[in-house]
């Protein structure tokens, strides 16, 4: 009896998603596998949204997919400096769409958008762009950024702008 191993389902799915992302790229987002040999590690470039201190920056991130993708979600990690309430200091992004229900380290809202196999790389990246524009300080990953975002917005934006320049190699 023929049964496809999970990794080939994942590979096929990632190739389909990559093709769709290159034919129909959303504004300000580029993403694709780091190399032809490894479809399970992607690099993403995200333009900082307008009217935010991230504006003008281009932020690099890696996305690492599990072998049973899309049953399980990928992990996304910024490699450019990223000071944000929902990004750990090591760059790992922490938003509800990257967690299935039950995987609940931050006790997200009951009805927030969760990981499921109908999500996609594109939806994750669009959520990350929204996250940059609108931090969620209810489920903070970087406590310092959370506190500063709430209590000293000017200082927060100063740090972010400095990172934005660094992301451009300036």
């Amino acid at each position: 009896m023929q049964r496809r191993p999970a990794a080939s389902t994942a590979l096929k799915r990632l190739m389909t998603e990559y093709k769709e992302l290159t034919t129909n790229p959303p504004d300000g987002i580029h993403a694709g596998p780091v190399s032809e040999e490894d479809f399970f590690t992607w690099e993403a470039l995200i333009s900082g949204p307008d009217d935010t201190p991230y504006e003008g920056g281009v932020f690099e991130a890696t996305i690492t997919f599990p072998k049973d993708y899309p049953l399980s979600p990928p992990v996304m990690k910024f490699t450019s400096p990223m000071f944000h309430p929902n990004v750990y200091s090591d760059g790992t992004v922490c938003i509800s769409i990257l967690h299935p229900p039950g995987d609940d380290p931050h006790q997200y809202e009951h009805a927030s958008e969760r990981w499921s196999p109908v999500q996609s790389v594109e939806k994750i990246l669009l959520s990350v762009v929204s996250m940059l524009a609108e931090p969620n300080d209810e489920s903070g990953a970087n406590i310092e950024a959370c506190k500063m975002w709430r209590e000293d917005r000017a200082r927060f934006e100063e740090i972010v702008r400095a990172n934005t320049l660094k992301s451009l190699g300036l």
Partner: peptide
Amino acid sequence: SYPTLELFIGSQVEPMNV
């Protein structure tokens, strides 16, 4: 219990292990 059917589906039907 849910503000919209979409949210119910996105959190109670589509994700695995629910």
